[in-house]
Design a protein around this nucleic acid. Sequence first.
DNA 1: GCCGTTTTCGGCCCGACTGTTTTCAGTCG
Length: 605
Amino acid sequence: MLGRPPRPGPVSRRGWPRPPSPPSVEAVTGAVTNDEVAAALTELADLTSIGGGDAFKARAYEKAARAVGGHRVEVATLDAKQLQQIPGVGKAIAEKIIEFCRSGTFPALEKQRAAVPEGLRHLVRIPGLGPKRALVLYQELGVTSVDELQAAVDAGRLDDLPGFGAKTAENLRHGVQVLRSSAGRVHIDVATAAAERIVGVLSEVPGCVRCAYAGSLRRSRETVGDVDVLAASTNPEPLMRALKAMPDVADVIGSGAKKTSIRTTAGLQVDLRVVPPESWGAALQYFTGSKAHNVRLRTIAVHAGLKLSEYGLFDGGTDELIGSRTEEELYRRLGLAWVAPPLREDRGEIEAAQEDRLPVLVTEGDIRGDLHTHTDLTDGVAPLEEMVRAAAARGYAYLAVTDHAPNLSMQRMTTEKMLAQREQVRRLDRVHRRMRLLHGTELNIDPDGAVDWDEEVLAGFDLCVASVHSHFDQPRAAMTRRLIRACENPYVHVIGHPSTRMLGRRDAVDADWEAVFQAAARTGTALEINSSPERLDLGDALVLAARAAGVKFAVNTDAHATAHLDNLRYGVGTAQRGWLTADDVINTWTLRRLQSFLRRKSANT
DNA sequence: GCCGTTTTCGGCCCGACTGTTTTCAGTCG
């Protein structure tokens, strides 16, 4: 299918996670998750487009992958007929899914894997490099990995390649850097899923007194390099054995009496430490970090004539144990209130804990509704009724449906479709007595800061989110003006994913954030904390700055499927890292207070 | 490969930007 590259040699297969083959124990026993099926279909889509296959076929696989990934029922439990009820899944894809659930792979996937070097799939993750040019690089230069691309760029081997000019080479160089800077780190949802699975298994091991994950994951960092799992037991051996025996362990990096390190098939490193039950609090505190926070704590201990380690808090002179069983005890003995893990970054939390003025952080339970969701009217995968049902099942008091507006033309939204949806929303609102449905939209902020539709149409929405979806490279002054003008629009209530960063793929836009925050605060425009694990936008540092400027926030999921509503926890984690209380977050408010905020916006500006 | 006020083929996500060309292909959202 592909032309042979001029430079023969073994194809590098290092570095990229791929579903286990032969199938894992889980796959054979039928416990294949929707995410795994979606990953296989996505891989097939990628390989198809890179291999120069039918673009529409690739798109069909992609669409099916998204639908499966967001499907509320485990597809492993469905038969062919039921599978074909999922939009985008027909006879052929249903067969592939069934075969995948049975054996962990299927013939079309294996055929593509054999035809396309695996590294090429990773090449197209470089911003600005798509399947077409990745294929050219492979066929003409034999490039099959990011490393080889970097070498080819550095050696000037792209210069003679038609269609690759100096600017392209420079863009690729920068793209490789962006990709590299995220190397080895995984998104928080992947790490959380792995950590919870492991904690679940280890907690069942006889002799396990306590088990939890610590590290940056417990602090709700946006990405994590590895997962730290902590267990308390007087008998570590069975715990170590249980971890090494888990089905998705790819290799054991090291294993001893106190610590075992493994790498999962997804390429994630997991460190398990087992401590005596009486050291639990000290160990949990120590392994949660951050390093900077712990350095401060140890300094405080030393000044008090004490010594703090992962084994406990000791008298500096006599080495007598003063405390070690719980974190609360340790902090109290050091004269501090217990500090919630997301705050432990040495960003003022030590002083606040000493003076007993730590914020009461917003929690997932405080959230009363989601203000940014999509349906299959635009690029979501679930129909309106399903999204509404799923939100109601979460016990929400309100839900805003905010499909894309016409200016994002790929979504083919029209005023007619929007008005028809509004009728549907009003009708459903009468059915769901306990949950108020708000009809909203996600407007597109154009390069000048203007948005879709005229005032008359905009005035008909209950709530408008407005977001940047293009022209990310505008100079700082223009981008700042653009965002401020969006804030000044009386119909814009929330700025969606304000920095537009994609973790590991795209940097935040360049703007004078201080000026933007002041505009948001002045105009009563909330800034979103987008809970998608690929965004988490605003990020914690900007949240801190915005809060200081008096900004209010909306922690939304931007759900494109019912399952995405569960991503809320990650947005809340970021809000906590930004020191936010429930009062800072408008979607913790009662419907009445929220509506008053929305109305005041129009009056203010 | 999916889908259908169209019933079995022919369309499917459209428009803009970028860098490269000299009229356009590739990429992105």
